[in-house]
């Protein structure tokens, strides 16, 4: 099980990268390699060129920006787990990362890589959707922004051209205090989820829900925001009944099914996990 032959390039800047992408054919970008390398070793991916973006200096960062947190595409999952800004503004991402692979994969795997790989059950796109993220894409024609909600074109297909690269992601983090919860169900620790659910909840002075966000992975090719449930919750009480009712919305989701996992089972998990994530979020919102 050895990778096929390819030509290797390791640009040092985004300009060099986009230049290469603009001229080469049949290229694969190599980020953390935790998804691409297995595909190469198994020869599921047969690129003529591999462009390694690990040596581009300014793609690995977490920055506080207007309206949120901006994360460089090459920021490792391990870095995010330990980053103080992430812990402060997007702790749900830390909780979600805990479910991603293993210590030996998070050390290399990147936030950008996950958002480009787009496994339907992946946690990171789910969190990006929770925060209505904006993705920053660079190409020979310059940089453009894409909303996470327009990012997934189909099964494992991001809205990106072959001559473009994802360079950064801005999470629209919430300003005031709020609670969060991320729950998932996988067969074993570190496996891709079957279904995962993330929730954010803010309470007003009276203890009523002033804002809610729910994002579910593993039911569709892209993370699904449970907007109907969010609306139901907003302005209402943060009690078990309201949470259960909101979670029931997930039971109406259209869910994909495959050889091993049925749509019914995904719906059931989505409901259960949404409830558990909301529960956690409310508890934390109360402090």
């Amino acid at each position: 099980m050895k990778a096929p032959p390819f030509a290797y390039h390791d640009p040092r800047s985004v300009e060099e990268l986009t230049g290469l992408l603009g001229t080469l054919e049949n290229v694969r970008i190599l980020a953390g390699g935790q998804s691409l390398m297995p595909m190469l070793n198994m020869r599921y991916s047969m690129p003529d060129h591999v462009v390694d973006i690990n040596r581009i200096a300014d793609l690995d960062y977490v920055r506080r920006v207007e309206g949120g947190l901006r994360i460089g595409a090459m920021t490792r999952q391990r870095t995010l787990e330990r980053d103080p800004l992430v812990a402060q503004y997007a702790p749900v991402l830390v909780e979600a990362l805990h479910w991603v692979g293993h210590v030996q994969t998070r050390s290399r795997g990147t936030f950008g890589g996950s958002l480009c790989h787009l496994d339907p059950a992946s946690e990171q796109p789910c969190v990006a959707a929770l925060f209505d993220a904006t993705l920053h894409v660079a190409g020979a024609r310059g940089e453009r922004d894409v909303s996470i909600h327009d990012w997934v074109l189909g099964y494992m297909t991001p809205a990106i051209e072959p001559d473009e690269a994802l360079v950064g992601i801005t999470l629209r983090t919430w300003d005031g205090p709020h609670g969060y919860g991320f729950e998932e169900f996988a067969r074993r620790h570190g496996d891709y989820a079957i279904v995962a659910a993330g929730a954010l909840v803010a309470l007003d002075g009276a203890g009523k829900i002033s804002r809610a966000a729910i994002s579910i992975a593993g039911v569709d090719v892209k993370p699904i925001r449970l907007t109907e449930a969010e609306t139901m919750l907003t302005g209402g009480p943060a009690d078990a009944g309201a949470i259960a009712a909101a979670a029931e919305v997930a039971r109406g989701l259209e869910c994909m099914s495959d050889a091993q996992i049925s749509g019914d089972y995904r719906r059931r998990l989505a409901t259960t996990l949404t409830r558990r994530a909301l529960d956690k979020a409310v508890k934390r919102a109360r402090g």
């Binding site: 297995p38 198994m42 067969r187 074993r188 620790h189 570190g190 496996d191 891709y192």
Partner: peptide, 13 residues
Amino acid sequence: TNYGEYLLPLASE
């Protein structure tokens, strides 16, 4: 035909 699809027992469980 790979260890993502065929599940062996792990220490965590």
